[in-house]
């Protein structure tokens, strides 16, 4: 692990100022000299492994703005402060009642210890766990642009079947982000170029030719909050996560589903898929298939087929297409059968 300078700015503008002092305009946040740290459960791990090499850490935990640590649930929706811990949001009573998909996506992630440490902003920005990315002796276009992708023809069981490119097929492993993208969340940021509201669906970038560019953020931009617009029918929602073991594992496939039903007919469906794509993945094609249809095995199956129509398997991850479809079918039927 390389030595680094550690700073604890006390408000957002000080943090932004430090970041813009020590980074330049075109730096990627994950490759910049100065990087923000919140819970540290992702960044500190990658620093120890030599994957992330900031010279300067800007710790956000001393920022004095209280709204960074608050959850507000109103008739307009939810506002999550960026520093709220995963565990707190997962246990929030109103969120559990009114937006179960959000609470479950957090509750089924990581472990109790990590959820108590990790922040919501850090969570949505977590970087891939691709084994070849994590270990610096492998070729990896994301870690070292242009070096190649060892996973492409290597052991790629956990890799993505949706949203990949010839340069990178690393999965986006987060769970919470699937609930957020399904519910049309918006990310609030502050940076040297002012405040922005970024639709959650625009926050992450597919790898394309530039897998090292992971998000739309600038190196001096801080996420301050995540807003979820109200969804009156959000009670009929769930997060289904399929994994190799019962807890403490990333999704092989997951589905975030919310349904607005008229009897058994779908007025509107919100669907996102985890564990199978390079970025948080809204399955709009599947939503369209269901709209106005009776939700049964057949229509759920048709929606799942649509969701994976563009899927591209590699040697070890082909099962994710079938598993992803079945996960979605099961999630849809379980959501339909929820007593709300």
């Amino acid at each position: 692990m390389r030595p680094f300078v550690y700073e604890q700015p006390t408000d957002i503008s000080a943090a932004v100022a430090l970041a813009s002092n020590f980074t330049t305009r075109d730096d990627q946040p994950t490759r910049a000299n100065a990087q923000f740290i919140a819970g540290g459960t992702n960044l500190a791990d990658y620093m120890k492994l030599g994957v992330a090499e900031p010279n300067r850490l800007l710790d956000l935990n001393r920022l004095e703005e209280q709204k960074l640590r608050q959850i507000r649930v109103t008739e307009d929706g939810i506002r999550f402060g960026a520093l709220v811990r995963m565990g707190e949001a997962a246990d929030h009573r109103e969120i559990k009642e009114r937006y179960p998909v959000i609470a479950e996506s957090l509750h089924l992630a990581a472990s109790g210890q990590i959820r108590n440490m990790a922040s919501l902003a850090g969570n949505v920005l977590q970087r891939t766990r691709c084994e070849y990315f994590r270990e610096t002796s492998w070729a990896c276009n994301k870690r070292m642009p242009g070096s190649g992708c060892a996973a492409m023809d290597g052991f790629n069981r956990q890799h993505a079947v949706l949203g990949g490119s010839t340069a990178c097929i690393a999965t986006y492993h987060g769970d919470f982000a699937q609930a957020l993208i399904a519910l049309d969340a918006v990310v609030l940021t502050e940076g040297s170029r002012g405040a922005r509201k970024i639709p959650f669906a625009k926050l992450h970038r597919q790898p394309g030719d530039t897998p090292h560019i992971e998000t739309d953020l600038a190196a001096d931009e801080i996420i301050t909050a995540i807003e979820v617009p109200a969804l009156p029918w959000g009670r009929r929602s769930l997060y289904l996560k399929i994994r190799d073991r019962e807890s403490y594992a990333f999704a092989l496939a997951s589905a975030a589903v919310a349904l607005d039903l008229d009897g058994e007919t779908v007025r509107e469906a919100r669907i996102a898929l985890g564990g199978v794509a390079t970025v948080p993945w809204r399955a709009s094609a599947a939503e369209e298939v269901l709209q106005g249809k009776k939700l049964d095995d057949a229509s759920a199956g048709a929606a799942a087929d649509a969701a994976f129509a563009e899927a591209q398997p590699r040697q070890h991850n082909a099962f994710k297409i079938e598993l992803g479809k079945r996960t979605l079918v099961r999630a849809l039927l379980e959501t339909r059968d929820m007593k709300v």
Partner: peptide, 30 residues
């Protein structure tokens, strides 16, 4: 039976999942 395996990258004869994130063992919930 269900979890453990060290994956060997066949091209390079190198181990791939060299940590407890990817080398799975049962947890309490299992």
């Amino acid at each position: 039976a269900l979890h453990e395996a060290t994956e060997v990258d066949r091209r390079y004869a190198r181990y791939v999942n060299r940590d407890l994130q990817d080398y799975l063992v049962p947890v309490n919930a299992d």
